[in-house]
Nucleic acid binder design. Structure first.
Lengths: 242, 242
DNA sequence: GAGTGGTCTAGACCACACG
DNA sequence: GTGTGGTCTAGACCACTCA
């Protein structure tokens, strides 16, 4: 009867999950039970579980238990004309958006630079959460100059989409500029809102919206559950007519 | 004299690093010393250190010690005409590429589909590692049909770049198609080659090269140290002349 | 061989969920 | 209150680096 180290345990249980032997949503035995089953200490089990949670295969919930996690694996197109709702609905997913916070703040330096306005000028800061089929997948923090969109926060609070607000202000045809992508660890608050393990990485997408003339009209940073989303870059359908 | 929990310790030492109080390359006290200094057990120190290593702030090296890690933070443009060397050199970085492996294998299904060839047809599989200013930042696994590029592996072994090989085969002007980006945990081998902590995430970039007519000529997957690289998406400079 | 980090164990106690 | 996961401790031993 062999003993196991934590990495072997991780792979063993991980395979049971990916092979479907452990179904999605199923509850795993408790740490004590697993440590008895595999003849290892409880902390070795915990190390393995923790690694699997980092991979997005498990959801560990204090006081409740450990569960196999469903992983929808969403494909999200980014490009010049990305829209949250149309993007998800094209895959047959329901797209929803909760408003988390809307306030007016003085523009931080980075935001002011992106929007080409004076640092400290008042901007709407709106935080919202996107969900696909009910599962939280993204957090968005956006900044829009009060001078340009006086009612931005109020409209967002009424559930009006960003695209629609742009349209009402005569910008039906905005495009993305300066999209950058990187990964980092979320803070505890972000992890909570995304309903994910705090050590699990998120992908951050920073972008600036501009009107057709190239003038910046909005800046935002969206944060995505790294294991739930796969980005597809878009530059490509327009086969260059040289 | 307060005690600390692991997350507080992580933030405390993390701040010392990001504030510059602990200089890059500096060696930290040993785990034993830190556990004495902060009046906590050695394992609490380890938990905090491990989290910092995951953030890319520390390099923990068995038998040697724990060091503050330099983080170059490279900006890498992706788009229709991305080239590794030109991309990095535009930022004043030296770009290098080591060949790790070159072999001929039957095309796996996914690769065959991407290249529009028969599954199992012979393809060159070349693994190389990219470095910026000497630091490993990416691993690339590329596939090219033997039928189309008979000498691909041999040329790569001689240090000829992919762009140059395309050029010699009459494709000076290839473009990227179907770029997708996601994040995952690296396997131990990948972590080693990238010289990073195995629990630290990597970003994976899958792409297909096509000729001007849109015919696929190569498929590759590159793996990037998530904390060392920030991708900039490119679809945008060509202000659409409607 | 001495010193470093890596793994495992055993046990105590805490925080949270749910009946 | 009971049972779950979360944190911390103490100590043993292993694996690796370097003099």
């Amino acid at each position: 009867m062999p003993k196991w180290n934590w990495a072997e345990l991780r792979d063993l249980i991980g395979n049971r999950i990916t092979s479907g032997e452990l179904a999605e949503g199923a509850r795993l035995p408790t740490e004590i039970e697993l440590s008895a089953e595999f003849q290892v200490g409880r902390h070795t089990v915990r190390r393995a579980m923790s690694a699997l949670a980092l991979d997005g295969l498990l959801s560990i919930e204090q006081g409740r238990g450990t569960f196999v996690r469903r992983t929808p694996e969403i494909r999200y197109r980014i490009g010049r004309r990305t829209r949250f709702r149309t993007n998800l609905e094209a895959q047959g997913l329901t797209a929803e958006s909760d408003l988390v916070l809307a306030e007016v703040v003085p523009a931080p330096d980075g935001v002011a630079a992106a929007l080409a306005i004076a640092p400290g000028a008042p901007v709407h800061r709106v935080v919202s959460r996107g969900r696909a089929d009910g599962t939280p997948i993204s957090l968005s923090r956006s900044f829009h100059a009060v001078a340009r969109f006086a009612d931005f926060g109020a409209l967002r609070e009424q559930g009006v989409s960003v695209s629609e607000i742009y349209r009402r202000h005569g910008q039906p045809d905005y495009v993305r500029r300066d999209t950058t992508i990187f990964a980092r660890r979320p803070d505890v608050h972000e992890a909570e809102l995304l309903d994910q393990h705090p050590d699990q990485p998120v992908m951050v997408l920073q972008k600036t919206d501009t009107d057709r003339a190239g003038t910046p009209i909005g800046h935002s940073e969206s944060i995505w559950s790294a294991h739930r989303v796969r980005f597809a870059v878009d530059s490509l359908d327009d086969t260059a007519k040289s």
